[in-house]
Simulated assay, not measured.
Amino acid sequence: MLSAKRNTSIFFKTLLVLGFGYFFWLMLKITLEYIPYNPEVSFLMIKQTEVSERPEYLSFFYTHVYTSIFVLLSGFLAMLRKNFGFKNFHRNMGKVYIFLILIFAAPSGIYMGIFANGGLLSKISFVILGFLWWFLTLKAYQLARKKRFKEHKQWMWRSFAFTLSAVTLRMWKVIIVYLFHPNPMDVYQIIAWLGWIPNILIIEYLITKKLI
């Protein structure tokens, strides 16, 4: 029985790592589209009004894009809670994750949310997402400083649920477009909320059930 449970645990962990690896690669490919610096590529092609009228927009955009990929990776490695033979690896990954979110990724995300596609509903969602992402991460950091590590772990999972919105909103976009073929702006309004609300609800359920 114990052997079966252990094998099941190993299977799901392996599946988790492989799944994350796949989606991380997809996100990395998106990030690499913006290297080298080019204000007229991919997503920026539909943001030329902001690019031309707001000199700071590109700085915030590239800050968000370039830091978010490292946030995603460091967050996942921190969530694994393993040192992999390196002293304080888990702790250092957590520090990188928290620092990048609080100083770069979340603030730039909030700014970009103000100019999000999809109208007011999308803007509200992305701004809320940015503020909650920042707050949850700060709370996790404060709890770690107080050595309340059980609570720290839970708040880190909440933060990571918002980090994963970069992946899940794109998943929802593919599903919705494939099934319903809606207007592009309608898609933005829908995925702006679907990208993070189911994530945090799942994490809250797992915390309530003491599964994480």
Rank of each mutant, 00 (worst) to 15 (best):
I10V: 14
F11S: 06
F11T: 11
F12Y: 13
T14P: 07
L15V: 15
F24Q: 00
L26P: 05
M27C: 11
M27Y: 02
K29V: 14
T31R: 08
T31Y: 14
P36C: 05
K47R: 13
T49K: 14
V51D: 09
S52N: 14
E53K: 12
R54L: 07
R54Y: 12
F61I: 04
V65D: 04
G75S: 09
K82L: 03
G85Y: 08
F86C: 10
K87W: 15
N88W: 12
N92L: 13
F99C: 11
F99V: 15
I101K: 10
P107F: 04
P107D: 01
Y111K: 03
N117H: 13
N117L: 14
G119L: 04
L120I: 15
K123I: 12
I124S: 12
S125V: 11
W133S: 01
L138Y: 13
K139A: 08
A140P: 04
R145D: 15
K147S: 12
F160M: 03
F162E: 04
T168Y: 09
R170M: 09
R170A: 09
I175L: 14
I175P: 05
V177Q: 11
H181F: 10
H181R: 08
I190V: 13
I191K: 00
A192F: 01
L194W: 02
I207S: 00
I207N: 06
T208M: 06
K210Y: 06
